[in-house]
């Protein structure tokens, strides 16, 4: 018997896995009748499949160890906290306002504006258009960068990984800020768009706020929030939603 399309090794695999069309399955069956060697191979494959199921299937029935119960996972509280912020975040976005959930500490808005939002937006405006010197330390020295800035700011910094949003780290720099120092991390997308993340500590130490949004001018927007010892301001010429997605991910990564 001849086959319109020759039977391949891939067909034999798919036959064993039940992933062939019915027509093709019949062809393979006919082929196997004429080819004892291939039939032996398929039989062995089936034997392997059966052995795997015999061996591993009983695991499905085992009771779960306590650490694998979602309800009692060790970092549950953190997860719920993230979930709570996400919830407020969604509400905030829906109403387009700056909601302050009662459960969270409220920091005087003016301090956050003067110490966080305005300097972050200004630093963005100064450095993001730079062609030759956008950053002080480039991303190829990322470990050194985070160590150095953490030391200067007296707080442990984390550089978020935004690659899955298409933003690669360019690098970062140390900046003077009101009474303190600040760190700026710059990211760039393939199309050249840059965003900066501004980190500094301040009078708001160890408080927690919801995400807040501020539009600085026609194109520049800032999402800012406080998480423990650090204030965060994410600045970019992006839409509110784009920036929000990034802010959420940064928040989650900081708490990992």
């Amino acid at each position: 018997m001849t086959y319109q399309i020759p039977i391949t090794q891939a067909d034999l695999q798919a036959y064993v896995d039940g992933q062939l069309s019915q027509a093709r399955q019949h062809e393979v069956e006919a082929y196997l009748k004429e080819n004892p060697e291939a039939a032996a191979m398929v039989e062995d494959y089936q034997h392997i499949n059966d052995s795997i199921h015999d061996y591993f299937d009983p695991i499905l029935e085992e009771p779960l160890p306590p650490q694998l119960k979602v309800s009692s996972m060790t970092r549950r509280s953190r997860i719920l906290r993230v979930a709570a912020v996400m919830g407020w975040l969604t509400l905030g976005t829906l109403f387009g306002s700056q909601l302050h959930p009662a459960m969270m500490e409220i920091t005087p808005a003016d301090t956050m504006t003067t110490d966080l939002v305005v300097p972050a937006a200004f630093a963005h405006a100064v450095y993001s258009p730079e062609i030759r010197h956008p950053v002080e330390v480039r991303s190829n020295e990322e470990k050194h960068l985070v160590k150095w800035l953490s030391k200067r700011l007296h707080v442990e910094l984390k550089i978020p990984d935004l690659a899955q949003h298409g933003f690669e780290l360019v690098g970062g720099r140390l900046l003077p800020s009101t009474n303190r120092m600040a760190a700026q991390f710059m990211y760039q997308r393939d199309d050249g768009v840059r965003i900066t993340l501004y980190n500094r500590n301040g009078v708001w130490d160890n408080k927690q706020t919801s995400f807040q949004y501020s539009k600085q001018d026609a194109t520049t927007a800032v999402f800012y929030w406080i998480d423990g010892p650090l204030g965060f301001a994410l600045v970019g010429n992006l839409t509110k939603n784009e920036l929000l997605l990034l802010a959420k991910d940064i928040y989650v990564q900081q708490n990992e």
């Binding site: 795997i52 591993f56 695991i59 160890p65 650490q67 694998l68 979602v70 996972m73 970092r75 953190r78 997860i79 993230v82 979930a83 996400m86 959420k248 991910d249 989650v252 708490n255 990992e256």
Partner: peptide, 27 residues
């Protein structure tokens, strides 16, 4: 379990890491 060579503890650690990541990255 199949990936970790039937090392039960290592396998459950892998599952736990996976769950924590899934729950924290729900968004």
């Amino acid at each position: 379990r199949a990936l970790m060579g039937n090392d039960v503890l290592a396998a459950d650690d892998l599952v736990q890491d996976c769950l924590e990541r899934a729950l924290s990255r729900i968004h």
